[in-house]
Design a protein around this nucleic acid. Structure first.
Length: 252
DNA sequence: ACCTATGTTGATAC
DNA sequence: GGTATCAACATAGG
């Protein structure tokens, strides 16, 4: 699930339910999820501290700690979510856990193991957040190169937060064929694409997730264009399964 | 049983 | 540097 809108909701859940509670214990035993830290390293850095401020850029979250402590970076990967004050999950699905002095807990819960917890995550390679990206940056960084425009949107160093579903939704709203090369788009196309991206992102945050998107709801199962009912095309673009309306998103 | 597909990313090769 | 491919992980479904 987790693209920008889901991550924003996760950040809000931390902000609303996990700040200013003293950390009594940390389970960082999963050395794959907690890489590159050795087991016990994150625990030693966080035990006795409190989380103070929860931030997000794209799909990356980081939470400040009190008293000059390190930031705790959290990424939900492909199937992760934040579980606050929920009973422990079976099968070791709680890959990383904070236990608070008050008896509650925060768990990074993930049936798969592609989530990540780490100290002081590096944000250098992340582009601006998809909900906030400026027109100038978008024109400059998205409108170059020969890759398909969808691949460009998925590149987190160009714009942060767009995943497979949000990319399809955005391109449908902007009426652009996902296979078109980014460099061939004119300024009008790029500005329309940026407006579609910001609107699709904000709508998805407000409505609770990328699955609320009009095109996204039609993906798979012989879906049709929400606007004209034309059967959607399906292909692999930028290495990801892609759906689009051949009539509303012309290739030319 | 076996094969494919799945919202992520990061490493590698051209 | 930009682009493409595969691998990492574990589960679900045909």
């Amino acid at each position: 699930m987790p693209e920008l809108p889901e991550v924003e909701r996760a950040r809000e859940s931390i902000e609303g339910g996990a700040l200013h509670r003293r950390i009594a214990a940390v389970d960082d035993a999963d050395s794959y999820v907690c890489r590159p830290h050795a087991p016990g390293e994150i625990a030693a850095a966080l035990e006795g501290r409190e989380l103070t401020v929860a931030h997000r850029r794209g799909k990356t979250m980081w939470v400040e700690t009190d008293d000059g402590g390190p930031d705790l970076g959290l990424h939900l990967g492909m199937a992760g979510r934040i579980a606050i004050d929920e009973s422990p999950a079976p099968n070791h699905w709680d890959r990383f856990t904070l236990e608070f002095e008050d008896g509650g807990r925060l768990a990074l819960r993930d049936k798969r193991r592609l989530s990540r917890a780490r100290l002081d995550p590096d944000l250098e390679d992340l582009g601006p957040d998809a909900a906030e990206v400026s027109r100038a940056h978008f024109r400059d960084r998205v409108g170059r190169g020969t890759a398909p425009i969808k691949a460009r949107l998925l590149d987190q160093s160009v714009v942060a937060g767009v995943g497979n579903l949000l990319a399809d939704e955005t391109l449908w709203r902007a009426r652009l064929d996902p296979r078109r090369s980014c460099g061939e788009l004119d300024l009008e196309d790029l500005d329309a694409l940026r407006r579609a991206l910001r609107a699709a992102t904000r709508d998805a945050v407000r409505q609770g997730g990328v699955h609320t998107g009009r095109l996204v709801r039609e993906r798979g199962r012989g879906g049709r264009c929400p606007a004209c009912r034309t059967p959607l095309e399906r292909a692999t673009v930028g290495g990801r399964t892609t759906f689009w309306c051949p009539r509303h998103q012309p290739s030319g």
